[in-house]
Amino acid sequence: MGSSGKGESQEVVRFENVGMRYGTGPEVLRDISLDLPAGSFHFLTGPSGAGKTTLLRLIYLADRPTRGLISLFGEDVSRLKRRNLADLRRRIGVVFQDFRLLGHLSAFDNVALPLRVAGVAEARVKKNVTELLDWVGLADKLNARPVTLSGGQQQRVAIARAVIARPQLLLADEPTGNVDDTMALRLLRLFEELNRFGTTLILATHNEALATQRRYRRLHLVNGELTSETVRRA
């Protein structure tokens, strides 16, 4: 397998027989069991409606499962206090499929959000955000509002926001969907760089070429069930 193989002594994400349904509807995820070791890199693939976004929402604690057990960083999330859940969320970065940039804030302020939420000093915020936006090729768009940016530029801002606080777990929902191949490769390299420094990555994508280009572990969802390469370590 093509995982980075670094620091896999502890599961960052652990699902045990997790099921999820919205309201009284059918289960959108069924009996999901998986272990994602620290420092691993996974592609999350599957057709539209297979449950990829729901799975990611459970991992970044936007939803609670209907059944089953979820542990993050070795902690059973159902037992954690609210205050500790906030701490846990700060260790997770998310690139949303629809970016979810705040339209009234500049690109700089959007990227600065996770640092400000964590109470980082403004001097450090300024330095880190400026550097990262420069790295993703948006040095001249610091004060631009999202509405004035192209889809690709917005996506890069969203990615910069997800990684600015150096999360231990990064979830990306179609992060290369709106960029050209060159930029897609460049962003993938950014993710690999983060992974090399220990960040666990789950990258949901439709891009088969991207998923096959790199031989990372793959979580493949079909109709809410994991079907391949999701070996649960016994």
Binding site: L88, V94, V117
Partner: peptide, 16 residues
């Protein structure tokens, strides 16, 4: 709601 949920998911405490 969307902005609040986003801040919440980033780890913003309720008081923030």
């Amino acid at each position: 709601h969307d902005v609040i949920e986003l801040l919440h998911l980033m780890g913003a405490r309720d008081l923030y």
